[in-house]
């Protein structure tokens, strides 16, 4: 089991290093470099350009710069932004904390709700609760986020005036200042997420309820709810781990559309801003962070599935 975990961690690290190479190579292949991009190539003052390149060490060979960048990233130093005014790690750190905050509340609302609704719709399949919630879920899934976000802003901030429609708090502010501004983005995000996870849980519950072992439990005289909680749900909820994990990665990686619509200072909006500012070092850093988040969360999900699923667990334990 331990060697298994170590092996997976090693493979995860290998993935991240390969991704970092690709990101770095991608930026290198672009015409010009970070400085020409930033300084709008044609009008660039040659002196300014040279100074910029000196600041960012762009005159050194690519492999040296990659090694420096990668080693720096390992210690948490992501270099300086292209205008040389701030350390990227500081910029990203505050933004990432915000993304984390948004994701945390969205998950807090979304995951339990999705599980609950998934189980309800699965158990009452084709009857009223199922029809109602499944229809709502389809709407929540199919309407693009920016449409539902705009609609909610219209209803809750413009018409009813209950919640602020836009986030004005700046990136580094304490958590308490994000309330109640964060509520609308959380609602939109959990709506989409709940719909996805709920439908997955629903089909999984239906499948398990039709299984031989659930029928056997019934014919063994196990009372209905005991059968549901002991025999059906542990099996039905196993596949949910991976779906929830992907959702978490999606949330942490910056939900660009939502952050832009609500002016939320998260990782996604930072990426968009960096791109429009042509701040290549920042783009590079965010890409690396998002990739690492996906790898870490997938790894955690796989390990959790392994622990929760006796078939996988025993496979590695008794080897």
């Amino acid at each position: 089991m331990l060697t298994m975990i170590l092996r997976r961690i090693f493979l995860g690290l290998a993935t991240i290093s390969i991704v970092s190479l690709i990101i770095f190579a991608g930026v290198e292949i672009l015409p010009g470099d970070a400085c020409t991009q930033y300084l709008e190539q044609d009008q660039a003052d040659v002196e300014l350009l040279e100074k910029c390149r000196d600041d960012l060490n762009l005159n050194r060979p690519a492999h040296e710069r990659y090694t420096e960048w990668a080693l720096g990233a390992l210690t948490g130093d992501l270099g300086m932004s292209v205008n040389g005014e701030a350390k990227i790690s500081d910029l990203v750190g505050a933004r990432f904390a915000n993304s984390l905050l948004l994701a945390f509340f969205a998950l807090l609302v979304g995951v339990p709700l999705a599980m609950l609704l998934g189980v309800i719709t699965g158990l009452w399949r084709d009857r009223k609760p199922d029809i109602i919630f499944s229809t709502i879920a389809i709407f929540a899934m199919t309407i693009p986020e920016f449409v539902s976000a705009t609609l909610l802003i219209l209803v809750f901030s413009v018409w009813l005036g209950w919640l602020p429609g836009i986030v004005l708090t700046s990136a580094g502010s304490p958590i308490s200042e994000f309330f109640p501004e964060i509520l609308l983005p959380v609602i939109v995000l959990s709506l989409v997420m709940t719909a996805h996870v709920m439908r997955m849980v629903r089909s999984s519950v239906i499948e398990v309820m039709a299984s031989d072992y659930v029928q056997m439990a019934t014919l063994k005289g196990v009372p209905y709810w005991q059968m549901v909680f002991r025999h059906a749900l542990p099996n039905a909820l196993l596949p949910a781990i991976n779906v929830v994990a992907l959702t978490i990665a999606w949330l942490l990686g910056g939900v660009v559309v939502i952050e832009v619509v609500f002016n939320y200072p998260g990782l996604g909006r930072m990426m968009i801003d960096a791109i429009s500012d042509r701040d290549l070092p920042v783009v590079q850093a965010i890409a690396l962070i998002v990739a690492s988040i996906y790898v870490c969360i997938n790894l955690t999900a796989d390990l959790m599935t392994m622990i929760a699923n006796p078939k996988l667990r025993t496979m590695y334990l008794r080897k």
Binding site: Y213, V214, M216, G221, P223, R230, P234, P310, K311
Partner: peptide, 29 residues
């Protein structure tokens, strides 16, 4: 009623199913 059926099923009247591999709950010892 369901409660009375549950008392008989698996008690005085028990079933041995076709495919036990699929009739035993995979997550329970």
């Amino acid at each position: 009623e369901r409660d009375d059926l549950q008392a008989i099923r698996g008690g005085r009247l028990a079933l041995i199913p076709q495919n036990s591999g699929q009739s035993l709950t995979p997550t329970l010892r």
